[in-house]
Every structure is written in structure tokens, then in C-alpha cells.
Design a protein around this nucleic acid. Structure first.
Length: 211
DNA sequence: CTCCCGATAT
DNA sequence: ATATCAGGAG
């Protein structure tokens, strides 16, 4: 089976399984989604969802975050790991958004990735979920693993994987395919013990039976 | 390539 | 003890 055909079949089956996918991260504004996604690096979204309510109660607006004390932010985000980098990046991003973007989270890939701690993955999540803009496909640990196992890429670099994936899915599916692969990766095809015996993609998976 | 880094599962 | 979790920067 060709890659293109396999990709279409994956989209078809997973869109049946996940009729109305929403991010597992909890958020209510573009800024909240940006912060939550920035915090999610090498951390479970479950953990992030414990931290963000505390964060946004303490600093509700972008301006509040821009003025916050770094050590206080560090204390709040500590349990998500990489807490010094994350705290510094979030406050710096809040400052830039206030001073250079009129207090509004920018709506393009080019602008978003100029913010420290924000690269294509985080930018794609914010663009597709908060603004409905598909400029890229967010390649996180789940998309990377699933794309490789399903034979949609042979690459290991997320940027290269994204380039392999983009032509395989219509642009309007880019946000969805991210959700599908993330959820399916968590539920059926995790890194350690993939449940190949109960996988509904088993028949089109080149890695079936292989770890 | 290395470093940043805590929480949890195995 | 080690691997993994919605990564990013130097």
C-alpha cells in the first residue's frame, strides 16, 4: 500500500474514532493555550492541567505575566520540568506580546516562532486550535512515533517528518491529524507497549507485531 | 550533539 | 535504575 493511500485510510478511520477532537490541554484564550503548550514540553498534559489553573489565577492576563516575578513563576511551573527555561520564556513572551504585538498573540508561524521557547510544534498547536489556521503540522513525540511506525516517514528530525506529512494530508486536515495521532498514540500505540492486538490500523501498519 | 528537569510507569 | 512524557535552544 502506498504512503498516500495509507495516510488517507488513517485519517478516515481515526476521524470515525474521534468525531470531535479537542486538545487535552485546558485553555480558554490563545494566550492560555500558548502557555499550556509551552509548559507541555517533556511533560504529560495531565501535569500541565494541574499547573495552569494556578498560573492563570495568579496572573490572569498577558500583562500580569509580563510583570510577574521570575522566581514566582518558577515555583508555579516547577513540577512540569525545565522550569527555569519555561518561566523565563513565558515571561519574555508576555513582554514581547505586550510591547510588540499590542497585547494580542500573533497569528502567524513566522511571528510566533520568534518568541523564545516557541518553535514550529507549539506554534502549530496555537494556530490551528486557537485561530483555525493550518500553517504546519505539529510534530510532537506521539506524531513522531506514529508517523514512523505507520510508515509515513523514515526520518527522525521533527522538521523533516513534518515535510513528509504535509503532502500526505489536505491542509484542512492538518490540525485534526495531529489530534488523531496524539490520542491514538496515547490510547493504543504508546512508546513502550503498543497494543497491536487491539489496533484498528493493524492491517495497514507496516510495523504490526514489531515493537 | 548536549543541556534543560520533575513526575510517573515499568 | 531506566524510559517516557503534546520540545526548544545553544
Amino acid at each position: 500500500m502506498r504512503k498516500q493511500e495509507r495516510a488517507s485510510e488513517i485519517y478516515k478511520r481515526l476521524s470515525q474514532r474521534y468525531p470531535a477532537p479537542e486538545p487535552a490541554l485546558t485553555w480558554s484564550t490563545p494566550w492560555e493555550l500558548l502557555v499550556a503548550t509551552a509548559l507541555s514540553a517533556q511533560c504529560t498534559d495531565e501535569r500541565v492541567n494541574m499547573v495552569t489553573p494556578v498560573f492563570f489565577e495568579k496572573w490572569p492576563d498577558i500583562q500580569d505575566a509580563a510583570e510577574a516575578d521570575i522566581s514566582e513563576i518558577e515555583a508555579v511551573v516547577r513540577s512540569t520540568g525545565f522550569f527555569r527555561n519555561k518561566a523565563k520564556n513565558i515571561r519574555a513572551a508576555a513582554n514581547r506580546i505586550m510591547t510588540e504585538y499590542n497585547g494580542e498573540v500573533p497569528k502567524s508561524m513566522a511571528e510566533l516562532i520568534t518568541l523564545g521557547g516557541v518553535a514550529r510544534k507549539t506554534a502549530s498547536i496555537v494556530l490551528s486550535n486557537a485561530f483555525g489556521i493550518n500553517e504546519g503540522i505539529a510534530v510532537d513525540t506521539h506524531v513522531k512515533r506514529l508517523a514512523f511506525r505507520m510508515g509515513l516517514t523514515q526520518k527522525t528530525d521533527p522538521i523533516q517528518i513534518e515535510k513528509d506529512l504535509m503532502p500526505l494530508f489536505p491542509r484542512e486536515q492538518w490540525g485534526e491529524i495531529n489530534h488523531f495521532l496524539v490520542f491514538y498514540g496515547r490510547q493504543v500505540c504508546p512508546a513502550r507497549k503498543p497494543k497491536c492486538d487491539e489496533c484498528e490500523l493493524n492491517d495497514i501498519c507496516p510495523k504490526k507485531g514489531v515493537k
